[in-house]
Structures are given as structure tokens and as C-alpha cells.
Amino acid sequence: MRAERSTIVFNVMGYVVITVLTLLCALPFWLILSGSFSAEDDIIRDGFKLFPDHFSIDAYKSVFSNPAQIFKAYEVTIGVTVIGTVLGLFITSMAGYVLSRKDFKYRDKLSFFIYFTTLFSGGLIPWYIMIVNYLDWKDSYLALVVPSLLSAWNIILMKNFMKSIPDSIVESAKIDGAGEFTIYWKLILPLSTPGLATIGLFLGLSYWNDWFSANIFITTESKYPLQFLLYKILASAAVLKTSIAGNLGADFKPPAETLKMAVAIVVTGPIIFLYPFVQRYFVKGLTIGAVKG
């Protein structure tokens, strides 16, 4: 019975801690949701409220003022995110796998070679020149996908996940005469689902949230991804109030404050759809079962 009591204690602790943290994360989001449906004036005067004093969908009207454009932007974002995530995951997992192989002589050196890029950077300008002047990707979807494919972080995390796969699997497969790529594709990948799901999630999120690439590379409006389009709406709303635009004849006065919140809500959409899907891959015992089978 001792074991059971400790389980109860553990469960009580667990539920309390997780519930408290969850509330801390949920409350601000609720406030944003409520704010996005509030009247602009109320937000400026009183700040956040649990429920809107005056219900208003003005902010959403501003966001969706041009529905055709928003839908196009969704298309671009989804396209870029899917392609980027799949391709990025493939290259990341290959690299991670190679670096996790203990018999691969240069793994430490190459790990360092990759990690080094997170330490030093030449800054924005040379990177921009590379992509625009040498690769000629200005206003091209390639500029949205390729430069964000890999990150040293993801590769090293991947390597770490794959390190926990027993060497014996590779060894026995080799004895069976399987090629390196086959081992990776047929054996390692299926055993790495939690890792793949994690890195895939991170990649997906970074593509989904990326407005900066579009900001500097994309000049055609129909190629704007969703995040950039939304940030553009926000930035214009903010600039309309500053003195630079003093002489901009603006009879379009978007509700700048509630707009920020509506944008946050619109942007967070994917997690609600994507995350439960990813969670399916966080299943314990997958690894061991496969090895035994």
C-alpha cells in the first residue's frame, strides 16, 4: 500500500502544479481574446478585462477587410509551412542521424562546424546580399522556404534524440546487409517519432510565425504569407498615428490596440489544429515495441 500512497501524493502534486501553470498560461490568452472583441476605446481607457464592456468585432473586420487577400495569404503560409517542414525535417533528421552514429569519425568536428553558426553571424546585410544578389531569390517563394530550412539547434536536438536508439539495431541491420540510407529510412526514422514530431513541430511553428523573411524579400502582395500580412496591417495602423504620416490622408483608422489582440488570436489558430495531431506521436513504448518486434 505504500507505493499507492506515494502515487496519490504524486498525482495531487502533479495536478496542482500543472493546473496552476495552465491557468497562468490561459488567463492572459483569455484576456487577449476578450480584448479582441472589445471596443477600442474601452481597451485604451481601462486595459484588459475578463469580459468586454462593449462587444465589438471591429478588430476582426480590420483583419478580414480584404478576405480574398487573407485567404491567399493562408494559402501561401500553408504551402510554405508544409514544404519547408517536410524538407527541413528530412535534411535535419539525416544530418542528426549521421552525427549520432558513434562510429562516424568526424561527428564531433561536424557538430562543431554546425554549432559554430549559432555563435557567430555576419549580420543581416551579407546574408541578404547572398540571397538577393547571388541566389537571386528576391520576391521568390524560395527565399521564404530555403533560408529557414535548417537550424543548428534542431540538428543537434535531433542527434540527441537519436542517440538513445541502441547501437545494436544499426549493427544487426548492417550484418543483414542493409545500406546506410536504408537503415536510416526503414529503421531509424520509425523509431524516432517523438523526436521527429518535436522537430517537425518546431519547424512548422517557425515557418508559420516567420514574417521577417517576407518582410525583406517579398515585394508582390499576392505572395505575402499570413503573418506578414497581419504585421503589415498592424504596422500601418501604428504608423497612421505617428507624425511621419501626418500628411497621409487616412480615413481608414483601424482600431490599433484591439487589432493587436485580434491578430494574436488569428495567428494562434494553427496550434489548435496542429498540436493534437503532433501529440499523437508522443506515445510511450513505441521505441521498445518496435525493437522487440
Binding site: I129, V132, N133, Y231, A235
Partner: peptide
């Protein structure tokens, strides 16, 4: 006719000129 948009326009303006586009 291209527009910088108002996001971060100083950065973009500087990039346009510094990169020699």
C-alpha cells in the same frame, strides 16, 4: 512600384541601399 511597408522600414531601406540591389 514597390513598397517597403511600414514594418521595420528603416532596416529595409538600409538593406536596399547597402546590398546594392
Amino acid at each position: 512600384l514597390n513598397f517597403t511597408t511600414w514594418n521595420d522600414w528603416q532596416t529595409k531601406y538600409n538593406l536596399l541601399l547597402a546590398s546594392g540591389e
